[in-house]
Simulated assay, not measured.
Amino acid sequence: MPRPRLTGLGAGLLSTASMVVAGAVAWLLPAGAQTVVFGVLFLPVCALTGLWVRPADLAMGPVVVPLAYAVGVLPVAEGGGAGFTGQVMGLVTTLALNAGWLYGGTLVAGVIVTVRKVRLMSAARRKARSAPRRPAAEQAAPRTGQEAGQSGQSGRRAPRSRVAP
């Protein structure tokens, strides 16, 4: 499985483009199956968006998928009548009647992003714990010239020669 790292904008564009294609495929089906097929295709898009968004943009995963759903559902939205107002009413009706798919997909993306964030935080905590540290007594005591690698000079380091001996 490829591990691309998408920015928040890239994840939004990928999920929106995928949902537009899914809407076009669902539009070819009979009227009763359109929204179900669209919803089923929405779930893997949400999972991939949650997996592929980069760690710095993890919060964007659950934000962009509902927007992608709303844009992608336009081809299969119930026709509310002629004109712009009728199309908007059809879109709102379709979104309201299929809110389960929308909430489910957003939940899938949210859970994946949350698990990834918790794993990143625990890995950072483990890394910080395993980093070598100087003992507290050694940190408080000033270092002498020889401990610091100085050869008896008063606070100055000897310049290194760039020419090989």
Rank of each mutant, 00 (worst) to 15 (best):
A124L: 14
T114C: 02
R126V: 14
A140M: 11
C46N: 02
L9Y: 09
F38G: 02
A96M: 12
A123H: 10
T7Q: 07
V76Y: 02
A56Y: 04
G83L: 05
A158W: 13
A131P: 06
W27S: 07
P44L: 02
L41S: 04
Q150D: 14
P132F: 06
V64S: 00
M121P: 02
S18P: 00
P66C: 09
P66S: 09
S130W: 10
T144R: 11
V163K: 12
S151W: 14
G152A: 13
T35A: 15
G145W: 11
R157A: 14
A59P: 01
P62T: 08
Q146D: 15
V73P: 01
R162Q: 13
L6S: 02
P132S: 08
P2E: 12
L48A: 12
G80W: 01
A17N: 01
L43Q: 08
M19F: 00
P159V: 11
G8L: 01
V63H: 00
V115R: 11
E78D: 13
R156V: 15
G155C: 07
G86V: 03
R134N: 13
Y69K: 01
T16V: 05
V115D: 05
P142S: 09
V37C: 09
T114L: 08
L67T: 09
Y103A: 15
A26T: 02
G23L: 04
R156Y: 15
R5M: 12
V21Q: 03
M1D: 13
V65N: 01
P165Y: 05
R54D: 15
T106D: 00
L51M: 12
R133I: 12
A82M: 10
G23R: 01
S151M: 13
R126L: 15
A96P: 03
F84E: 09
G32S: 10
R143D: 10
A164Y: 14
A77P: 02
R160C: 06
V73T: 11
A136F: 12
L58V: 07
L48C: 08
V25G: 04
P2N: 13
F84A: 12
W101M: 05
V108A: 03
A26V: 04
V40R: 09
G81I: 05
R134P: 10
R162A: 14
G50D: 00
S130M: 14
Q87T: 12
S18A: 15
Q153P: 05
L95I: 11
M60I: 07
V115M: 07
G104V: 04
S151A: 14
A99S: 15
G86I: 02
L43C: 06
P66W: 04
V37Y: 02
A109L: 00
